[in-house]
């Protein structure tokens, strides 16, 4: 592929607005579950019948009898703890997702407009690929013992950004050869201005999908960290922590493990399906 090719044969054009509306309608059935689940998880603390640290029943008591989902390892109400346990996870995941997406959107466009910066960012992604995120989080948590949640958030942002930059750069590359970007270069616009005015408005689909993906990834990282007891500490109610704490009593009261597991899984799944609905469609296959 030569430079001439990219400069002369660019067919990149945003879908027309009616087309966008049609796509939105198709995506709706996949967006609603995510919205409902997020709303329920955030409203949870106000709906909980008990506080998170008051024992109300026997250790690993079975479901029913004043505790909808039974008791946990200290006889606390699993249902109440479940309702409390989502807010912070969702909040942190949102923060990580937003930070990674915003950084990647800017850096990804910069990588395309400035090839030299692009090569450096590409190398950074090569390096980041070699560090499993779980190990990365352990490292940060170790080196920053009092970091708590912030250590996890920092680690997740640093580790997630290089990959996200690649995604944005790949989507922005064809746009960078579009006539309107070249016209902007010709009149002397700065890279930041081109990014904000010309590129990002046409990358809405990619950026939205990226945010969803990073949110899901953040849920994975935060919950895994919590499971490894990095971040939230007992007696906090946290879904991942609940899974770990109640695992020994899984036979006595399976709900104490199953309910938080299902909550984490549902959070990730609903958001991921919503993301896939918002993602720009790949070209339909035209079969002969």
């Amino acid at each position: 592929m030569t430079t001439t090719a990219t400069s002369t044969d660019n067919g990149a054009a945003a879908p027309t607005r009616p087309g966008r509306r049609r796509a939105a309608r198709r995506a709706l059935p996949l967006l609603v579950p995510a919205a409902l689940f997020l709303a329920a998880a955030l409203a949870g603390p106000w709906l909980a019948p008990h506080t998170i640290d008051a024992p109300v029943t026997a250790t690993y008591a079975a479901a029913g009898d004043g505790a909808l989902l039974g008791g946990d390892q200290l006889g606390r109400d699993v249902w109440s703890r479940l309702l409390h346990g989502g807010g912070e996870l969702i909040g942190c995941a949102f923060l990580i997702g937003a930070a990674v997406t915003a950084t990647a959107a800017l850096l990804g466009c910069l990588a395309v407009l400035r090839p030299r910066a692009g090569r450096i960012l590409e190398r950074a992604a090569d390096v980041a690929i070699l560090l499993p995120s779980v190990l990365g989080i352990m490292l940060v948590a170790l080196a920053w013992p009092d970091g708590g949640r912030w250590a996890v958030i920092t680690a997740a942002v640093v580790l997630g950004t290089p990959f996200a930059v690649r995604v944005v750069a790949a989507a922005a590359a064809p746009l960078a050869a579009a006539g309107y970007v070249e016209a902007a270069l010709m009149r002397g616009e700065s890279s930041l201005s081109i990014t904000v005015r010309e590129l990002l408005p046409n990358l809405r689909g990619t950026v939205t999908a990226l945010f969803g993906l990073r949110f899901v990834e953040a849920v994975y990282i935060i919950s895994t960290a919590a499971f490894l007891q990095i971040g939230p500490q007992p007696p906090e109610a946290d879904w991942a922590l609940m899974i770990r704490e109640n695992a020994p009593g899984i036979l006595l009261n399976p709900w104490a493990v199953l309910a938080p597991s299902a909550a984490v899984a549902l959070l990730a799944i609903t958001v991921n399906l919503a993301t896939s609905a918002l993602a720009p469609r790949t070209q339909a296959v035209t079969s002969a």
Partner: peptide, 13 residues
């Protein structure tokens, strides 16, 4: 899409 959203330790449980 559903499968890759589930954290592995949740799936393991």
């Amino acid at each position: 899409t559903t499968a890759f959203a589930i954290p592995d330790f949740v799936l393991a449980t």
